[in-house]
């Protein structure tokens, strides 16, 4: 197993119990969609993995390393192996595309090298290569705030890949994007995961997108896993357990139509 969460619990200082003893295993190279209503604890879960949010109890083990017990320096080294992609892109708006991309290497270079923007030649070459891969060659010197949403998310993806990670933690990658760009971004993330053999946990609230792009789906409700299975087993009954009572027939059918369209293309 690449990632093993056991008994992962998070209680916020306000007293809210965001995660209630979550157990989850993600094998190498598996892309997994985490769905669930707002406030179910999806964001908290992936932030507990790289300890942007400190878990209250339970353990996170990445490729044999117990993340939960690490000191500051070891945690920084462990974070290099986990790339994160954010809902609002979270690019440093006033830095250029290249600087944002190279910030993925911060864990590998010293402070003064990074301060003077002296990155190893290999890193810069990799940055050019990845920017070319996502079609942003011409944007290298643009400031991040001059880019469109889809372009920004591509930069966010490249930044995460620059870390040379084993696992991608993806938090609502499409929530700020239009439907077409959403699909392009999801496809890109999946292709890149396949090319590099990366595992990914993708938080997503668009059920149709989750079903279209991920083979494994995990449903989270009120801090507990209530569904874990292949995308094909996502029935209206399952959606009702995850989200509550609603007419789900349209959601499911929309997905099937989507897939039919996608196949010939």
């Amino acid at each position: 197993m690449l990632l093993t969460l056991s008994g992962l619990t998070k209680r916020y200082p306000t007293g809210d119990l965001a995660l209630k003893g979550v157990n989850l295993e993600v094998p190498k190279g598996q892309v997994m969609a985490l769905i669930g209503p707002s406030g179910a604890g999806k964001s908290t879960l992936i932030r507990c993995v790289n300890r942007l949010v400190e878990p209250t109890s339970g353990s996170v083990v990445l490729d044999g390393t117990e993340i939960t017990g690490l000191g500051a320096a070891a945690l920084r080294r462990a974070r290099r192996r986990m790339g994160m992609i954010f809902q609002e892109y979270a690019l440093v708006e006033r830095l250029t595309v290249m600087e944002n991309v190279l910030s993925g290497r911060l864990g590998y270079v010293g402070f003064w090298s990074s301060w003077f923007r002296r990155f190893p030649r290999r890193d810069v070459e990799e940055a050019f290569r990845l920017l070319h891969r996502v079609g942003l060659d011409h944007m290298v010197d643009k400031r991040a705030d001059a880019l469109s949403g889809g372009q920004r998310q591509r930069v966010g993806i490249v930044r995460a890949l620059m870390q040379d990670p084993q696992l991608l933690l993806v938090d609502e990658p499409t929530a700020s994007l239009d439907p077409k760009t959403s699909r392009q971004i999801m496809r890109l993330i999946l292709e890149l995961c396949e090319e590099r053999g990366l595992a990914a946990i993708i938080n997503i609230h668009d059920v149709a997108l989750a079903q279209q792009f991920a083979r494994r789906i995990v449903g989270l409700r009120a801090g507990e896993i209530v569904f874990d299975g292949p995308a094909t087993e996502l029935t209206p009954e399952v959606l009702t357990t995850i989200y509550g009572e609603e007419d789900w027939s349209q959601t499911i059918r929309a997905v099937e139509e989507d897939e039919e369209e996608a196949v010939p293309a």
Partner: peptide
């Protein structure tokens, strides 16, 4: 904006690097 700080922290950057970047 805290999310930019989160993003740089998540790359494994040290505290001085988070400050500077």
């Amino acid at each position: 904006d805290r999310t930019q700080v989160e993003a740089v922290t998540a790359t494994g950057a040290s505290n001085p690097q988070v400050l500077a970047w």
